[in-house]
Amino acid sequence: MKRDASIALVLFALVALLPLSGEAYWMRLGTTMLMYGVLAMSWNFIGGMAGYPSFAVAAFFGLGAYAGAVAQKFGVPMGFAWVGAGLLALVFAALLGVALLRLRGHYFAIASLVVAEVLRELVNSMTGLTGGGMGLNLPIPAMASVDAQARFFFYVMLLLAAVTFTAMLITANSKLGFGLRCIQQNESAADMLGVDTTFYKVSAFMLSGVFVGVAGAVYASWVYYIEPPDVFDVLYSVKAIVMVLLGGAGSMFGPLVGAAAFLSLEELVWRNYLEVHTGVLGLMIVLLVLFLPKGLISLSQRLGRRGKLR
């Protein structure tokens, strides 16, 4: 745990130097990467540790985005709106978890997928509060310059990613994380062994919701305009999963490595094949699942292991 923490400290410190480049392009990319990292690490709580194939990331993200935006519309200061959005996502995850985590396998996967669809329809129909399909504008934070603004949101995402990572590290090295591993391996055996499976699963689901909720709210402030199909996009859920798969499920740095690798690929595709970028994204997913289902970290381990005699 200490080793992981020190590596992470160095890693985050290095990333914190990025604004020195002074280029808006790299700032945008860095902020997006950290946001993706938060989504992937969050998914890891429920998907990696507990082994429940959740597609609820998009629901938490959209909920957080709209909660933050609506709160600011009613005059709540930005910071409080973000924290409030996280808390709302936390409570929502708890209630949703109690209901949905009784399902397993495909049933859980699809039910969690559907949540974002339902929220999107609700947001669409609550025109008075959310602007409906017209979307919602957010106040632009008063900053000295566009650059200062970009820097500000970069550091906020960095902080959020660091907090999420810390939560993940603590969880993985605690009774909660150990219990989740038991559940992932064999849920009924875990139950027999005294693991309060419902409580553990719901806790994992709450952890997988809260930081995504904050990320959604920060994202909304960052881009200062949101609309339902944008923030409730099912691709957020799928990307989170793909990033964890890419980085290797169950490892501490997997989600972050996966987020960085995924974003690089996505950016490459966006820049070169705008017309077919979803298709190429699909192809990447297919190749990843078929040829690298255990992720990049396992690849490096496999390569590394050849050198050592074990």
């Binding site: 998907g47 082994g51 194939p53 396998g105 495909h106 996967a109 799928v238 999963i241 793909v242 798969l245 979803t278 298709g279 994204l281 699909g282 192809l283 990447m284 997913i285 297919v286 990843l288 699942v289 078929l290 289902p293």
Partner: peptide, 15 residues
């Protein structure tokens, strides 16, 4: 696991 077949067919669907 369920997750992989879901993700695979999702990728194919995007294509």
């Amino acid at each position: 696991p369920v997750l992989l077949t879901l993700t695979l067919t999702f990728g194919l669907d995007l294509m």
